[in-house]
């Protein structure tokens, strides 16, 4: 691994924000830290950036220990959710600031700034002040500023969260293109699973200050290890073995008795639905979402969510039969049981 975090621990007072977290990023890899707010993902990014100090563990880059190195000496690029362009500098001065600090000649800075403005598709704004740009434009400039100094690692802290949906999708693709083109190892923090699925080579899913699962987007979506990951990575039907025995007995053999996994995870699109006059299930509601329909189906064990693509004659109240391919389900550990209340 290029960048390695081993047993990173961060404690704020009595609250353990990060508990012995270990992750790695390879050269050229795009890694997403995914998790709900308060899971420790931003803390981990700040530790890597050098903006917070480790309380335990170590961070190494190509085997050099970074733990005691201040942020300004790490040579990383960072983009914040809040754009954070310097309001007193023009766009060009913002982008060139890191180079100016490094003592790069004025003409070289100008050339590099022009090149970066082209890269982020805003060649006309060099002399504008940040306040004159839209949110999406500001974030592109922030990205250009971060990569201007050829950072050894690019850190993105929820860079798209403050933007509206359409701009977000555009910029998401551009971040990916730029990262691919330059091959900068990148770590992005996000709470949006769709963003993580679309961008990442590897997703690290976090909860309560620990890593729950790390893997490719496909791994996390189709083979979640725990109930938390299954629920966080999209809609899922989670059923205990008793219910599976009742509804889809064919799936039971895929569960190994030795495993701690207690729940079957069935994605809504993995369940096939057919109108049958004497079907055991009933459609309770249908949401039309454009490219698909999401159905709530009442079964003998409770509500299941099913998604269908294309034309579908089903209507609310129809009796239906549900079927699932025998290898479609993943057994997951139930890690979201109610935590014991801590006495105050």
């Amino acid at each position: 691994m290029y960048l390695n975090v081993r047993d990173a621990t961060k404690i704020y007072g009595t609250f353990t924000a990060l508990d012995r977290v270990s992750i790695g990023i390879d050269k050229g890899e795009f890694v997403c830290l995914l998790g709900p707010s308060g899971c420790g993902k931003t803390t981990l990014l700040r530790l890597i950036a050098g903006l917070a100090e480790l309380d335990g563990g170590e961070i190494t880059l190509e085997d050099a220990n970074l733990s005691q190195m201040p942020a300004r000496k790490r040579g990383f690029g960072i983009v914040f959710q809040s754009y954070s362009l310097f309001p007193n500098m023009t766009v060009a001065e913002n982008i060139g600031y890191g180079l100016k600090i490094r003592g790069v000649a004025r003409t070289d800075i100008a050339a590099r700034v022009a090149e970066l403005l082209d890269l982020v598709k805003l060649p006309q704004v060099a002399d504008k002040m940040p306040g004159q740009l839209s949110g999406g434009q500001q974030q592109r400039i922030a990205l250009a500023r971060a990569i201007a100094v050829d950072p050894r690692v690019l850190l993105l802290d929820e860079p798209l969260s403050a933007l509206d949906a359409k701009v977000r999708a555009e910029l998401r693709d551009e971040i990916r293109q730029v990262q691919r083109a330059l091959g900068i190892p990148t770590l992005m923090v996000t709470h949006d699973q769709e963003e993580a699925l679309a961008l990442a080579d590897k997703i690290i899913c976090m909860n309560h200050g620990t890593v729950v699962q790390a893997g490719t987007p496909e791994d996390l979506y189709h083979r979640p290890a725990t109930r938390f990951v299954a629920e966080f990575m999209g809609i899922s039907n989670l059923l205990p073995p008793e219910d599976i025995a009742q509804l889809f007995p064919d799936l039971l053999p895929s569960r190994r008795e030795s495993e701690r996994a207690q729940l079957a995870c069935l994605r809504p699109e993995q369940i096939d639905i057919a109108s049958v006059a004497d079907g055991a299930a009933t459609i309770r509601s249908i949401s039309f979402l454009g490219n698909l329909r999401r159905l709530q189906v009442d079964t003998t064990v409770g509500m299941l969510t099913v998604e269908t693509h294309g034309a579908n004659p089903c209507r609310v109240g129809d009796r239906v039969a549900l079927t699932v391919a025998p290898d479609a389900c993943t057994w997951v550990i139930d890690d979201t049981e109610p935590r014991k209340a801590v006495p105050a």
Partner: peptide, 19 residues
Amino acid sequence: ALEEAAGSLGAGLGRTACD
């Protein structure tokens, strides 16, 4: 975040304070 951005671009306290 403004100071942190300056820091990660390599600016020390003196530079961040002035710029």
